[in-house]
Design a protein around this nucleic acid. Structure first.
Lengths: 291, 291
DNA sequence: GATGGTATCTGACTTAAGTCAGGAAAAACT
DNA sequence: AGTTTTTCCTGACTTAAGTCAGATACCATC
């Protein structure tokens, strides 16, 4: 007697909208109509193209224009002519606008914290929420270069090491592996790319440059909850493109046969197996690709 | 480097509202303003008190009155005088209203089915959704008498047997246990109660009447995802109240020391241990309570 | 049967949201 | 250069949503 999937989904939808409606409420309470607050927040989250915002919020062009005008009159937003296309307008928060945006953010954060507080099962709840957010938001993952010593990078690497520890029969100790120096994964020598799912890291890859026109791909990791959507492949493609832009002509990498998905990906994407090129104890497979 | 819980929660909230907004859209598309559609759906879901709906939807009394009026003029809703309180109005869908409600339901169902379709990970997704819906909606669980042979009852009992199988060292085979005849759990002899979480069963308990003023409590089960919120206790209290109403003076039950939470609950709620009163192979503890 | 409280309704508002036709400026195309 | 397309703006609307001050009918209580 399994329950009806549609009924389960709809129960979820009702519960979520009932609770999450409360989060939308934080868009009120600052003396500004919902529409204007939504536009302000879209700009604050980095959308700077009016057309983009119109599509995203589903607004009529006249309405969007008026809402923007009211924000301008409040002194919260300023518009600059687009450098290449004079018809377009680039939107930016003023200092006052940024303050106002921060106020909305902290209202939302407070509501979220309150909903989480005092739940003994918060950890499992958050895991379930991650699963859903990542599944529903797969399309919106964006890859961007990041500091390999930043918090997001450390999160990704921590998860990566933990997974290797689970997957390798002998476990995995970072200290036994040649830890790639972060300095080699910063331009102009190399690069470190993170896949961002709505502001949270969901995957990473490092390009560790040798400084001689070659580099190694390191630390390819994808959050287990987002796997199966081709993110690893997108990360590899982004890493190759970035390497090319940095003037790197040959990429190498080492990996382990205990990671068959990764090995299959490399073979499929034009990597060729080569002999061992280091004495790291963990890898047993080595690949190369000319760019 | 764990991710910030608030950020995770808010990512979830954004992903969910973006996707679930689509479900709200099904409230449009039938040529009726959102407000009226929401009232119609609230009535269709069983809310028949105008004040209740006003609170639930957060409406001003004037607004609620007008929305209701427009539904009446469309011939979708009729109002009856409350039997006990003449100020109140009991709301009911007309045949035409029920049709219209069903149309909204199937629109929503179709959207939900579409969002689920083609997801290879639908099963895990639904588990995560259940967890969230049950955690967020704990307050809204309602206990009601149900047919012990109905689909919901079969679902609960299936889960119950499966859990016993996991918890008992020797496993559990329904056929070895004295299966309570469903007929003994139907009024006036006994009762079968289900805890409903927004239309889906989240727990159950049976009162198996002997017909001589005594009865046995059977099949107390709570969905693992809702545990820890006192639902078992509420179910037991409801079962006792129902038994009392059926003229039952003494309740008995058998249980197993492999189910310590249940045993603790019985002891806490005024049950006293008694000697074995049947030869069922599974139980090793026996309790009684005078009503 | 007077008093106070409750549930709903009515009418007169204000504000927000959404629609639509048209127009100006800039870009893209021919 | 002329035409078309794109991007945004403006003004004149309609509709929905929300507010508020009473009015009406009913209930409970003394």
């Amino acid at each position: 007697m399994p329950l009806d999937p549609v009924a389960r989904f709809r129960r979820f939808a009702r519960a979520a909208t009932a609770e999450l409606g409360a989060l939308d409420q934080s868009f009120l309470g600052r003396g500004r109509p919902l529409g204007a607050a939504r536009v302000l927040n879209a700009i604050g989250r980095g959308q700077e193209d009016l057309a983009e915002i119109r599509v995203h919020l589903g607004l009529d062009s006249g309405l969007a224009s008026r809402l923007l005008r009211s924000l301008e009159q409040e002194g919260l937003v300023e518009t600059v002519r687009h450098r290449e296309d004079g018809r377009r307008r680039v939107l930016r928060l003023t200092a006052k606008g940024a303050e106002e945006f921060a106020a909305y953010e902290s209202l939302s954060d407070a509501r979220a914290a309150k909903l989480l507080a005092g739940r003994p099962d918060a950890a499992e709840l958050l895991d379930a929420m991650d699963r859903i957010a990542l599944a529903l938001g797969r399309q919106h993952v964006a890859i961007a270069e990041a500091d390999p010593r930043g918090d997001a990078a450390l999160h990704c690497l921590g998860e990566y090491y933990a997974e290797l520890g689970r997957r390798f029969a002998q476990g995995f100790d970072v200290n036994l592996s040649r830890d790639p120096q972060a300095a080699d994964m910063v331009p102009p020598k190399g690069s470190f790319l993170i896949a961002w799912s709505d502001g949270l890291p969901a995957g990473c890859v490092g390009v560790k440059g040798a400084g001689d026109g070659t580099a190694e791909i390191k630390r390819l990791w994808v959050d287990p909850l987002t796997r199966g959507a081709g993110l690893a492949r997108r990360l590899m493609a982004a890493a190759e493109a970035r390497a090319r832009a940095l003037g790197i002509g040959v990429l190498r990498l080492d990996t382990n046969s205990a990671l068959p998905e990764a090995v299959a990906l490399y073979r499929r994407d034009g990597w060729t197996e080569i002999p061992r090129f280091n004495d790291d104890p963990y890898p047993d497979l080595f690949f190369e690709k000319a760019l």
